[in-house]
Design a protein around this nucleic acid. Structure first.
Length: 309
DNA sequence: AATGGAGCCAACCGCAGAACT
DNA sequence: AAGTTCTGCGGTTGGCTCCAT
């Protein structure tokens, strides 16, 4: 493997950073800022290339980083943003304060994507690239392009995303999501599950099938869930909402989540909403095929439907 | 206790585009 | 305008840790 040009000029250290190196970098940047990254290692006294310093700072040393596992809200947001943005990790990460693109990318690749694969979830195209012409396979994407399924890592259950946080200031290129609660009402949610009693084993994916308000902390940022009313969402100039009003599962626990037909999303809005889900099936996994009917996606009819334990 | 596989994540690489000369 | 350098991004990988056998 070759080295970046900035690393060719002199022998630079590679691999994991030592605490001493971290300290040097932190001290330098906190005093002088990073300025030109290529000159940082020289002035900071590091045998690293500028690129490595930049990466270390951005992904690890920055004081405003939030470390640790992703919250259910963050997870849901990642998945929903992935619908729109695909593997644009930097843009997705911008909507997750104090998270890095590397973190988001790793989380997706290790946690979410893997579970999707394990369930053989059919691929669903991202918005900009969908070709919903009824019989085309062009719209099929790799599994990591499929954002609509969330799996419960503890219970091996697959759920649809819950309402998601604000996307304030979401303006990346021609993509524009206005107002709040993007995607909050794109889907309806399965009946609530009892939370695990052992909070120490809490999994960030766990509550994704859970009623939003039960985990809702009004004092915490990015939890501005709203369980009522329609919300407008835009991609470019196109309105992709308002969408479905989240039902009250207390009243109707058998309501099957309604999932937008990708064909309708790509057409610029969600009007029509010819949802195919009419079953009273409670098993989230069993719902998978229904999502695909509307767009004639090939799917595995043998998707397991009794993984709920 | 030893070992091998899987999972996870920090860090690297190559590329593209922006900025600069 | 052309060449060079810098920055940012996405994909990939190496190595550490955990866990099952």
């Amino acid at each position: 493997m070759g080295h970046h040009s900035c690393c060719d000029k002199k022998k630079v250290k590679r691999g994991l950073w030592s605490p001493e190196e971290d300290e040097k970098l932190i001290n330098y940047i906190s005093k002088y800022g990073h300025g030109c990254w290529s000159s940082v290692p020289k002035f900071a006294g590091l045998q690293r290339c500028g690129k490595s310093c930049r990466l270390r700072w951005i992904n690890y040393l920055r004081p405003d980083l939030k470390r640790g596992s992703f919250s259910p809200e963050e997870t849901a947001l990642i998945i929903e943003l992935h619908v729109i943005l695909g593997n644009k990790w930097a843009q997705i990460a911008k909507q997750l304060p104090r998270r890095t693109d590397n973190e988001v990318k790793n989380f997706w690749n290790t946690s979410i994507k893997k579970k999707l694969i394990s369930y053989d979830v059919p691929a669903i195209p991202t918005l900009p690239d969908m070709h919903c012409n009824g019989n085309s396979e062009e719209g099929l994407f790799s599994l990591n392009e499929n954002p609509n399924w969330i799996l419960n890592s503890q219970q091996d259950q697959l759920y649809l995303p819950p309402p998601t946080p604000n996307l304030q200031g979401f303006d990346h290129g021609d993509l524009k999501l206005e107002q709040t609660n993007y995607g909050a009402n794109l889907v309806q949610f399965p009946p609530p599950m009892a939370p695990p009693s052992d909070s120490s084993s809490y999994d960030p994916l766990w509550s994704l099938g859970y009623k939003p308000h039960e985990n809702f902390d009004p004092n915490q940022e990015h939890q501005n869930f709203s369980s009522s009313g329609a919300t407008q969402h835009y991609i470019g100039d196109k309105l992709i909402g308002p969408s479905i009003v989240t039902p009250n599962y207390d009243e109707d626990p058998l309501t099957v989540p309604m999932i937008p037909n990708p064909c309708e999303i790509i057409n610029g809005n969600l009007c029509g909403m010819s949802y195919s889900c009419a079953s009273l099936e409670l098993d989230p996994l069993a719902r998978l095929p229904y999502f695909l009917v509307g767009c004639n996606y090939p799917y595995d009819p043998h998707v397991p439907n009794n993984h709920v334990e």
